[in-house]
C-alpha cells in the first residue's frame, strides 16, 4: 500500500549543501532520525505524506472487511475477522501518531482524507463480494502489505520504524487467517472451490498494483531510497511477492489468472504478464468501483459521531472546572 504513498511525493528540498551532506552522512551511518532532529524539509514532507497515506489505508481498509463481520460463516471466523479489523484500526492509530511527531495534527490528517486531498491504497476501492474475498484479502492484501512493511521496520525515521515493528508483529495473524479460509474453501465442495478461484481472479492484479508503478515511472523513488525511507524498489517488492505467493496458490490448487506467468530459472523468479496500468491510475484518480462509497462511509462516520467528540470534550471541561473548584475550597 505503502509505496503508493510516494505517488506525487515531492522530496524537493532547499537546504544548503553542507546541511544536506551532514544529514546524508547520518542516514548512511544507519543512525535513526528522531522527531526533534534537524531534517531537510523535503524529508519531513515526504514522510508526512507517506505515513499519513499508510494510516488512511489502514482505516479505509477496515471497510471492505467490516462488510463481512456480521456474515462470517462461523463464530470462530467472526471472532478472527473482528480482531483483524480491530487491529487495522490500531495500525491506523500508531501511524497517525508517528505522522503527528512531524508537526501535523490528527485533525488535519483526518481532514485531508475526508476532503479527498490525501490518498489511500488503491486496493481498498474494490468490493468484497463473497466470503472468499475475505480469505483472499488476508492472504494476498495482507501478504503484500507485509512485503512492504518489513523493510519499513528499518526506515530511517524512528517513529515510523517503531510503528512498523508493532504492525508487522500483528500482520502475520492476518495473513494466516486469510490463507486458512482459502484452504477450507479449496478443500470443500466444488462451489466453494469455484468461489475461491473467482476471488483470486478478481484480487490478483489489484494486489500486484499495491506495490505502485514500475520503477521507471516512479519519479521520486530515488530520493526516498537515498534517505532510506524506502529500502527496495516497487518492482523488487512486487517480484518478491509473486515468488512467495505463486507456490501458495499451487498448494491451494488454484490458478493464478496470468497466462504469461512462468518460472524463469535464470533470474530465479517468475516472469509475469503486464499489469493494466490504466486501471491502476483510474482507481488512484478516484474512479474505482468503491472510491465514492469508501469516502462517503468515512465522512458519515466522522459527521455522525461529531456529537460524541463534542460531548466528551464538554464533559472533560466541566469535570476539570469542578475539580479546580473543589481544590480551591
Amino acid at each position: 500500500m505503502y509505496s503508493q504513498g510516494l505517488i506525487g511525493a515531492d522530496g524537493t528540498t532547499h537546504e544548503d549543501e553542507e546541511f544536506l551532506t551532514a544529514f546524508q552522512a547520518r542516514i548512511d551511518a544507519e543512525l535513526k532520525i528522531e522527531p526533534n532532529d534537524p531534517m531537510p524539509a523535503g524529508y519531513r514532507k515526504t514522510l508526512v505524506r507517506q505515513i499519513a497515506q499508510h494510516a488512511h489505508s489502514e482505516i479505509v481498509g477496515m471497510l471492505p472487511e467490516g462488510n463481512w463481520i456480521t456474515r462470517a460463516p462461523t463464530l470462530r471466523r467472526k471472532a478472527a475477522l473482528l480482531a483483524k479489523v480491530q487491529d487495522e484500526g490500531g495500525h491506523g492509530l500508531y501511524l497517525y501518531s508517528a505522522a503527528e511527531t512531524l508537526g501535523v495534527s490528527r485533525e488535519e490528517l483526518v481532514d485531508q482524507l475526508l476532503s479527498g486531498k490525501a490518498k489511500y491504497s488503491s486496493i481498498f476501492n474494490y468490493p468484497t463480494q463473497t466470503w472468499a474475498d475475505i480469505g483472499t484479502i488476508g492472504w494476498l492484501v495482507d501478504g503484500a502489505a507485509i512485503m512492504n512493511q518489513i523493510p519499513l521496520c528499518r526506515c530511517s525515521f524512528g517513529p515510523y520504524a517503531r510503528a512498523m515493528i508493532r504492525v508487522c508483529k500483528e500482520e502475520s495473524f492476518h495473513q494466516r487467517q486469510g490463507y486458512e479460509i482459502m484452504l477450507t474453501l479449496c478443500r470443500g465442495s466444488d462451489e466453494q472451490k469455484a468461489m475461491a478461484q473467482d476471488a483470486l481472479n478478481r484480487w490478483w492484479w489489484p494486489s500486484l498494483m499495491m506495490f505502485g508503478p514500475h520503477d521507471a515511472e516512479s519519479t521520486h523513488s530515488d530520493q526516498s531510497m537515498a534517505w532510506k525511507i524506502k529500502r527496495f524498489t516497487n518492482d523488487e517488492l512486487r517480484q518478491k511477492f509473486i515468488d512467495a505467493t505463486v507456490p501458495q496458490a499451487e498448494f491451494l490448487g488454484l490458478t493464478v489468472p496470468d497466462p504469461e506467468l512462468k518460472w524463469n530459472e535464470d533470474k530465479g523468479g517468475y516472469d509475469h504478464g503486464e499489469i493494466d496500468w490504466n486501471e491502476f491510475w483510474s482507481v488512484v484518480k478516484g474512479n474505482g468501483i468503491c472510491n465514492r462509497a469508501r469516502l462517503k462511509a468515512r465522512r458519515m462516520a466522522h459527521d455522525d459521531n461529531a456529537w460524541v467528540r463534542e460531548a466528551a470534550l464538554a464533559y472533560a471541561e466541566k469535570a476539570s472546572v469542578r475539580e479546580t473548584a473543589v481544590a480551591a475550597q
Binding site: Y94, R106, A312
Partner: peptide, 11 residues
C-alpha cells in the same frame, strides 16, 4: 509504547 488522543485521563 506510543501516543493517543483522549479528552481525559479515564478515556
Amino acid at each position: 509504547a506510543g501516543s493517543l488522543h483522549a479528552v481525559d485521563a479515564e478515556m
